[in-house]
Amino acid sequence: MSSLLLLTRIGGRPAAFRAEDISSIIELTGITPVPRAPDFVAGLAALRSRALTVIDSRKALALSGTPREADVRAPVVEVGGHAYALLVDRVDDVVAAVGEPTPPPATLGPAWTPVARGMIETTAGPAVLVDVAALVAGPQRAAA
């Protein structure tokens, strides 16, 4: 079974989203910052008549290192009735999955393990398959 994946890079590493999780990809033109919001919430953006919460994926993973300029294109996902736009390093391509995802290996590290559904082989190489619900919940999700 070959499903489609959206391949992106977060913190320089390949990260894949299942195509059915992504409702659209938008070009983020302006982000309205939210005072007192947790770090990984970059702010709000408008998609047609609704407000999107913009998630900085790198910070949601609590990745260290100097952040690179994010792609202006952002995948939009819907979790629990709320729409989120995900800031990623780069939106690469839509690729076909090769085979089924495999359980995440322990060596992914503390940042990636909580958001990984597993590893997936794609036509463009292997990637971590990202659980969007875990990603938008931010770094405190481990407790939940």
């Binding site: 939210v34 007192r36 919001a37 947790p38 990984f40 919430v41 609704r50 407000a51 919460t53 979790v79 629990g80 009735g81 709320h82 989120y84 938008v136 919940a137 931010g138």
Partner: peptide
């Protein structure tokens, strides 16, 4: 529109 949980948790909005 309702707030996502991450923003609701701030308790200000």
């Amino acid at each position: 529109k309702p707030l996502p949980p991450a923003l609701e948790a701030i308790g200000l909005y």
